[in-house]
C-alpha cells in the first residue's frame, strides 16, 4: 500500500470547557492526488478537523499522519497550502498581487538571498494557472472578492505544496463565479495533481472539486464518492439549501452502503424541481478517478 497523503486514525477533540466532543472518533484516509470534500453542517467539526490537519490544534486523542509526518512537522515544512474561509488580509498594505503570492514561498528563503529564480518562475506559472496574470501588478488591497480568492489560492500554491486545503471556498461567490471557480479547481488539479481538501457546508463547493465526499457531523457519517451521492440526493440536498436552511445540512444523514452503490437517506421529502438543477455539477462520471479506501 502506498503512503497516504492524510491518514486520520480515530481522532477526537473536545474544546476546553465543553462537555461534548466537537469530533468523535473520526478516521479517514486520503490518498495522494485524491480530492476529498468534507461536507457537514455548521458546528459539525469541519473547521476543527482542518485545524488538526494543519497542525494548529492537537487532537484530544487519536493520531494524524501527513505524508509520514506529524501535522506540526508538515506545517513547518510547508506541505499544506491553505486558503482560509475569511480572507481578511490587510488591504492597506501597499503590495502587489505578485509580491503577496511570491511571499507564500519566499518567506522561507534565507534573509541573505534574493528570491530565487525557481520561486519566481513557479509563481508566474501559478498566477497563470489561477488566472491572476491580468492583475498581478495591482495592489492586493484593490481586488474584488473573487479576484482576491484566486490570488490567495495562488499564494497557497506558490510554495512546493503537496496538499491544497480550502475552507468554505464558495462563500460569498455568485452563481456564475461558482462555475468558474469549479473550472479553476479542475484546472489546478489537472496541472498540479495535488491532494485537495475542501471543507464546506455548501454542497456545490464539495461537488465542484471532489472525488470523494466525507459527511461530517461530529462523527464521520460516511465517506462516499460523488457517484454515491446520486443526482437525486444532491438535488434534494440542494432543495434543502434553497428551502431556507441556508446551507446548513443539519438533520442530513447519508449512509454509505458500499463503494459504488447508490446510497443516502435524507429526512425531508421535498420534490426536485427544475431550478435546483442549476446547482448540479456537469462533470461526466467517467472522468472521475475512483479511489476506494
Amino acid at each position: 500500500m502506498t503512503q497516504a497523503a492524510v491518514e486520520i486514525d480515530s481522532i477526537s477533540y473536545t474544546y476546553p470547557g465543553s462537555s461534548s466532543p466537537a469530533l468523535d472518533r473520526v478516521s479517514l484516509r486520503v490518498e495522494d492526488g485524491e480530492r476529498l470534500g468534507i461536507l457537514g453542517p455548521n458546528g459539525g467539526g469541519k473547521s476543527t478537523l482542518l485545524k488538526i490537519i494543519l497542525g494548529l490544534v492537537s487532537p484530544t486523542s487519536g493520531r494524524v499522519v501527513i505524508f509520514g509526518r506529524s501535522p506540526e512537522e508538515a506545517r513547518r515544512e510547508g506541505i499544506i497550502g491553505y486558503v482560509a474561509q475569511k480572507t481578511e488580509i490587510e488591504t492597506g498594505l501597499p503590495m502587489s498581487v505578485q509580491e503577496a503570492v511570491t511571499l507564500g514561498a519566499a518567506w522561507r528563503v534565507s534573509p541573505w538571498r534574493a528570491t530565487p529564480r525557481s520561486v519566481r518562475d513557479h509563481v508566474k506559472r501559478v498566477l497563470a494557472l489561477v488566472g491572476c496574470e491580468a492583475y498581478a501588478a495591482r495592489p492586493i488591497g484593490r481586488l474584488s472578492g473573487g479576484q482576491l480568492q484566486r490570488a490567495l489560492i495562488a499564494r497557497a500554491l506558490a510554495a512546493d505544496v503537496k496538499i491544497l486545503a480550502l475552507d468554505e471556498p464558495m462563500v460569498g461567490i455568485d452563481a456564475s463565479g461558482q462555475e468558474r471557480f469549479a473550472e479553476l479547481l479542475e484546472g489546478v488539479h489537472r496541472e498540479l495533481k495535488l491532494t485537495t481538501l475542501i471543507v464546506s457546508h455548501d454542497l456545490r463547493a464539495i461537488v465542484a472539486g471532489s472525488d470523494r465526499v466525507a459527511c461530517l457531523a461530529r462523527r464521520l457519517h460516511s465517506h462516499t464518492s460523488p457517484e454515491g451521492l446520486t443526482p437525486q440526493i444532491l438535488a434534494e440536498l440542494f432543495t434543502h439549501d434553497v428551502a431556507g436552511l441556508k446551507g446548513s445540512l443539519r438533520g442530513m444523514h447519508v449512509h454509505a452502503h458500499g463503494p459504488g452503490e447508490p446510497c443516502g437517506e435524507v429526512h425531508d421529502g421535498e420534490e426536485v424541481s427544475g431550478e435546483v438543477q442549476l446547482g448540479m455539477p456537469s462533470r461526466p462520471a467517467q472522468e472521475k478517478p475512483r479511489v476506494n479506501p
Partner: peptide, 23 residues
C-alpha cells in the same frame, strides 16, 4: 526588520492564516 522582512510582511498582510503557513 531587514532580516525578518519576508515573514514579517507575510504576518502583516495576513495575520489570520500566517500560522497555518508555518510563519
Amino acid at each position: 526588520a531587514w532580516w525578518f522582512r519576508r515573514p514579517l510582511l507575510f504576518w502583516v498582510l495576513d495575520e489570520e492564516s500566517s500560522s497555518a503557513f508555518g510563519v
